[in-house]
Computed example of a mutant assay.
Amino acid sequence: MSVPAISPSVLQTALEALCSDHSGFDDHFRRLPFAWPADGSLVNGDFLHPLFGADGADMDALVEHIYRSLIPFCLPRGEVKKVTKAALAAGDIHPIIALADRARELFVRTRGATTAGGEAGELILFLLLEALIKAPLLVSKMSLKTNSNMNVHGRDGIHLRYCPSLNGLVLHLGESKLHKGLAAAVDDAVSSIEQYLGDRALRRREFDIINGNMDLSGLDAESEQHLRAVLNPYASPPSPVHRTHTCFIGFEYGGYAKVAGIDSTKVEAEFQRVYARRAQTAAPLILEKSAKLPATTRLHFFVMPFPDVDSFRTTFSQKLGVQID
C-alpha cells in the first residue's frame, strides 16, 4: 500500500497544532542547563524542577497547573473542541464546567482513589510531551477505559511528533515513575520498558489500540490520511516510525533543604547550582541502568526532584477531592 506523500514541514506544523494550550508552562517548570554525556547511546533527557516561591518550591502552584491538563488528558480532543466552541458561542460556561467535572471523575474512577496521588506523574508526563516536546497525545487511553471490555494496559501515554533531525515520525511511548529514590524510579522505568520490549503480544495490542483509536480530530484531511497509512500496523511493507520510550522520573531530593532560608530573589539560582551537581551524577546513573536495554532503544528521561514525594501525592489527591492510603 502506497503512503500518501506530504511535505514534512506541513506535517510537523499540523501535529504541533494539535497540542493543547499549555500557557504558563514555563512559569511552573524550569529546565536545568545540562549537556548529556556524548557516549554514542540513544539516551537523552531533561533535568527539571518546579517554580520557587517565597517559601521554597511552590508545590501548590505546580498542582494547580497540572490539574488544568485533566480535560485534554482524559477526554477526546474532538469532543473537547466541540463542547468548548459551542459553549463560548452561546456565552454559557456550564458545559465547560461539566467537561472538567467529567474529566476529574474519569481520572479518579480509572485510577482508583487509593492510587490517584501517584498518577500525577502521568499527568506531568502528558504536559511535558505536549508543552516541551510538541508531541500531541495520539490515543486518549483514559476515555477508552470507560469501555470495560477493552484491555488498554501498556504505556502510560502515547504521543506523536515529526522530528526534522530524524526526518520522520516519532512515537513517544510513556513511562511515569514517582519514587522516594532516583535509582528506584529509574530501575522501575527500565524494568517496565524491558518487559514491554520482551512481550510481543503486549506490543501488538498496543499498536492495535493505536490503529483503531487515533485521536486526530483537528487535522487536515491530507495529514490525517498520511498518518493513518504510516501508522497502520498491517501495511506491507510497514512504514518506518521511530519509537522513543519517554520516562518521567520523579524522586525526593534533599537539595531543597540546602537552600532553605535563602533570599527569594536568589534561591532558584542557588538551587540550580546545587541541582547541577546532582545532575552530573544522575545522568551517568541513568545511562548505566539503561544499558541493560537493547542498544537500539531510544530513551528520553524527564527527571524532576520533589521536596517530599508523599506530600506531593497528598496535595494532588486533595485537589482531586480523594484520599490516598
Rank of each mutant, 00 (worst) to 15 (best):
N44P: 00
P76S: 11
D101K: 13
R102I: 05
D55Y: 12
L42K: 06
D60G: 02
T110N: 13
T114W: 10
A131F: 06
A98G: 00
P95Q: 03
C74P: 01
L42S: 02
P76H: 14
F107H: 04
G24S: 08
A116N: 02
G117A: 09
E130H: 11
L123G: 02
K81P: 00
S23C: 06
F34Q: 04
Y67W: 11
V83E: 08
T114S: 14
V43G: 02
A86L: 09
T84Q: 01
E119Q: 13
A89T: 12
G78I: 10
T114C: 05
L106R: 12
L125H: 08
A54E: 11
E79A: 04
A120V: 15
V43N: 03
A61E: 04
P50I: 05
G121Y: 04
P72D: 04
I124G: 01
D58N: 14
V80Y: 00
L75P: 05
V63Y: 01
E130Y: 09
T110W: 06
A61K: 05
D26N: 11
P76K: 14
A98R: 08
L125D: 03
R102E: 15
A116T: 06
F126C: 06
P76V: 11
I71K: 09
A98E: 12
V43H: 05
I97P: 00
F34V: 03
P76I: 09
L127W: 10
H65S: 09
A86V: 06
F52G: 03
D26T: 10
I96A: 01
L42Q: 03
G121L: 07
P37F: 03
E79L: 13
F52I: 03
P37E: 04
F126R: 10
D55L: 12
G78C: 09
C74F: 04
K81I: 12
G112L: 05
G112H: 04
F73R: 02
F34M: 07
G118E: 02
K81A: 15
P50E: 03
P37C: 04
L88I: 13
S69A: 13
V80R: 04
E64S: 06
H65W: 15
G45C: 03
I71S: 12
D55T: 15
A87S: 05
P72C: 00
E105W: 02
T115Q: 13
M59F: 10
L128F: 02
I96Y: 01
H94Q: 14
A89P: 01
G53D: 10
H28V: 15
S69K: 12
P33E: 06
H49Q: 05
F47L: 00
G78H: 10
G40S: 08
A120M: 15
L32K: 05
V80I: 11
D58L: 08
R111D: 00
K82Q: 15
H22Q: 13
T114K: 15
T84L: 03
S23Y: 07
R109A: 15
R68D: 14
D39I: 12
W36E: 02
I71R: 12
H49S: 11
L123S: 05
D60Q: 11
F25W: 09
A90E: 11
L125N: 07
A35V: 15
A90R: 04
R104K: 14
L106T: 08
K85I: 06
E130T: 12
R31P: 08
H49P: 02
R31L: 14
L75H: 05
K85T: 13
D27V: 03
G53T: 09
A100G: 09
A98K: 07
